[in-house]
Design a protein around this nucleic acid. Structure first.
Lengths: 190, 190
DNA sequence: TTTATAATTGACCACTGGTCAATTTTAGTT
DNA sequence: AACTAAAATTGACCAGTGGTCAATTATAAA
């Protein structure tokens, strides 16, 4: 057994998250192994399990942070000074923007099934949706059916789900996103 | 080395597909291993590789079959005797219905990334989309922008993507599906 | 019966997520 | 400075994965 590394820098939860995030964002949940993270950290993969229960929990911790950022952005939009229809448009665009600029996070939050993250991510995803729904409802010209708000959300989700993996970031499909958002607004107002 | 099994039934491509399909549909692409299929077939996992290049190709062969069924259903709908707006409605509903009743297939076709299936499934998915787009366009009251047809598709995709894994089949979300389709039609007509 | 080829096997490879006894490091106490 | 208890880390190990391939066996044709 080789001697323990001199801890030039202690292995903390935060440092693990930092390195994990880099790889995670680059290649996605599935492609990154605990061993590859350990390698970059210069520790054994076992050590990570001392700080995180499992791979799912590790990545969920990252995801959680980013989603609270999304919620903050939605909040900011409501507080802004634009008129309601502009705000509505912005909310929808920003949701897509977030989804495509944080693809790995979006994936875990709204797409990954069958892992232990599930119960956690469902709560968080639900929270994000509630925020979204409330915002959309309050900004719409006419009183919306809740089911229509849900449809709008699913339509946004479809956009993100599709382009995730094909493009690297929101800017590459900005135009298509704008058009899609207008389509959704037509559905809401129709 | 044990002697070769007496071939009460020869191991054919078709028999492999049959057994693989069962497991595949039940648990999805990721959850099923080549060894578990081999076990059910009563052969070694190596034998399967004699008939199929890899796991991706095996599952893609299954998926391909089912998607040609979808295309046939779309075709039938166009040929039917209903009026155009009913047809349009049916096309949209049937796409969702297919997606939720063939979740594993839908997953490979429209959702799985980063495998060797990719190039294959993209061609097939594109073919399915072309069929969809052409149909929607021909059935719509007014002349549609192609980008709006694309938005309609993405909106459908969002519905299927979301409910996949949460429900077992289309019937469980029939009502929500109908409402979503109406939302999409509003977007197309708006 | 011989022979060529088709089909099958299973050991093997490099990997995965996860566990855990053994060890080392660290900090507090005497 | 020495002792000790707790915290942190290691790496062998497990059961599993997709995939390869030399060796073997089955089969059908000559």
């Amino acid at each position: 057994m080789s001697p323990r590394k001199t801890t030039s820098q202690e292995l903390t939860r935060e440092i693990i998250l930092e390195k994990a995030r880099t790889q995670f964002v680059e290649k996605g949940f599935q492609q990154i192994s605990m061993r590859s993270i350990a390698k970059q950290l210069g520790c054994s993969h076992g050590a990570i399990y001392y700080h995180f229960k499992n791979k799912a929990e590790l990545f969920y911790t990252i995801v959680e942070d980013d989603f609270s950022k999304l919620n903050n952005r939605l909040e900011e939009t409501i507080q802004g000074s634009e008129d309601d229809s502009t705000k509505l448009y912005n909310i929808l665009i920003r949701f897509i923007e977030f989804g495509l600029n944080h693809q790995s996070q979006y994936e875990i939050m709204f797409m990954v099934r069958n892992t232990e993250v599930d119960s956690l991510s469902q709560v968080a995803a639900n929270h994000s949706y509630q925020m979204f729904a409330q915002t959309v409802q309050s900004l719409s010209k006419k009183k919306l059916e809740i089911i229509d708000v849900w449809s709008a959300f699913l339509a946004l989700h479809g956009f993100v789900s599709h382009y995730r993996g094909y493009v690297d970031n929101f800017d590459e499909v900005k135009l298509a996103a704008k058009s899609h958002v207008n389509f959704i607004i037509k559905g809401l107002n129709g």
